[in-house]
Design a protein around this nucleic acid. Sequence first.
DNA 1: TCATTAATTCGCC
DNA 2: GGCGAATTAATGA
Length: 198
Amino acid sequence: MSIQERLLLSVEAIEEHYNAGDYIFREEATPQFYYQIVSGEIKLNSYKEDGKEFIQNILSDNACFGESMLILGKPYPVNAVATTKSTVLKIGRDQFFQLLKDHPHIFLDMYKTLSEKTSEKMVLIQKITGKNAEERLMELMNQMKEAKENKEKFSFEIPHTRQQLASLTGLSIETAIRAIKRMEKNEILIIKNGKIFY
DNA sequence: TCATTAATTCGCC
DNA sequence: GGCGAATTAATGA
């Protein structure tokens, strides 16, 4: 879900451009804007005590991010980092609340997607903890595929690097790669010139 | 196309 | 299971 671009522009949305690796906001910062992706890919991450990256979520076109913290008015618990060249629209806090007030359907949509995201995360965390590498990756891929129409086996190309998959499941890269290879052997997925199909 | 950098894989502990 | 080195892929000049 997303707010229509024309609505965002009608309240003086600012268009911003980022390169891969650029921060859009940082952990601990106070939320000031509602952000929506026009194009590109954004990840929400944080770093564990050992310095290992944990990716909370990877978002692409039309997704919004950081909205729950904006509504709450609490500091961000994660960083937002562009992983590719990206274009983002943002509107200020006041404009955002005004939009919600003026357009109840936007409020409902927002509420619904927020609930979906929250529920997804809760389910994933519950399914991932205590499981071995292969099961974790399978749960993650199941969830990503749920959003797709085509449910056929091997029809879904995983749009992430192995590193990203590892950081999304709390595995190390090597463990993720080894697990992925075993999964290929067990015909849970196939690998076609490096790309994973599930 | 070549050079640089990032991602992946492999051998070893 | 993770480190460092070797290989390969992606990116940019």
